[in-house]
Amino acid sequence: MTTALSARVARFPFPFATDSYRYLTNVEPARTPVTTAAGGWGAGVLDVDDDYAVELAERAAVLAADPTRCQELPHMRVASWDALTTLLPELAAACPGETSLERDGDRWTWRNDLLGTARTFTVGDDDSLPEGPLAFLGSQIQDDVVLLDQREGALWADAGLVTFAADWSMGFDVGMRFLEVHGPVPRVHEAGVVQRAERFLMRLQPGEEYRRTNWTMTVDRRLDTSTETYAEWGRDRRLVVGDPALPDRLHLRVEVQHLIRLGVSNAICFLVRTHLLSLRELATVPEWRQRFGAVLAELPDDMADYKGLTRFRAAAVDWLTAG
């Protein structure tokens, strides 16, 4: 095991507390450190790790090939500035040596040595940041970003920069109500999970921050599993089954999602930070191997189908439980 590998294991947000998994409105306050069998995670909102520069290069490539991954309805510009000016200070605090932020009123100067970025812009002045505040934010943090407007007694997914979607399309979902966004998800409507989540989010007050995790599985370290590129990655779900490299190719994909009420715009900022850990890496923690094997074996078929696990689930359970 290389050191890079164990660092990845040590900070992996392993999401299962029991041997079975069901959908819940599993929100908890942000910035609460979690201890895991291998280490821990969760002390901050932004989690900058060894893959930082690689992932941001990948985001830039995805966006260059398909600009529809960044969506912003015209009324969301204030929210985009708000997200940028909320999260750059957060990043500066997370990486004090490598980044710096100087503010002179609305005139901000941002330096990021991890990427070689140096920019000066004026908050609220669109000309000072030609790519737009949302696209600029997306070039600095690993998280995908969705901004939700609140009106007519609902939340609306009216802007977002999403290059690492787990099987959905920001371009198609932009402008939907929160409940419509979740339309395809099984069980959650009957169980009241998303209705409750929406009421909870609508009551968040300026600056309040919560988080939750979600998970699925991905073949290889492919971050861009959006609906747009399904034609490129869909076959791997089938091909991986007979592949002797299955434990190295198949990954548990965990999203740490933050939910932040932005102060100036009143928008909800939804951050999705994706972590991938191969079954072989996961198995270096015997407790995780046993638990994930059990969760995967017990998962109801409709949930496994929705998550796209059906083709390789049995093979994954076999490998996990053989160890």
């Binding site: 198609f172 932009v174 419509e180 395809p184 034609a231 869909g234 779900r237 089938r238």
Partner: peptide, 27 residues
């Protein structure tokens, strides 16, 4: 010309259903 699966997901802004490649997982 891809075969599209007509998904139960509708965009109010586009006034359209979402389609996705029906046979993407076929080898």
């Amino acid at each position: 010309a891809r075969r599209l699966h007509v998904y139960a997901h509708v965009s109010r802004r586009a006034g359209a259903y979402l389609g996705f490649m029906a046979d993407a997982e076929e080898v």
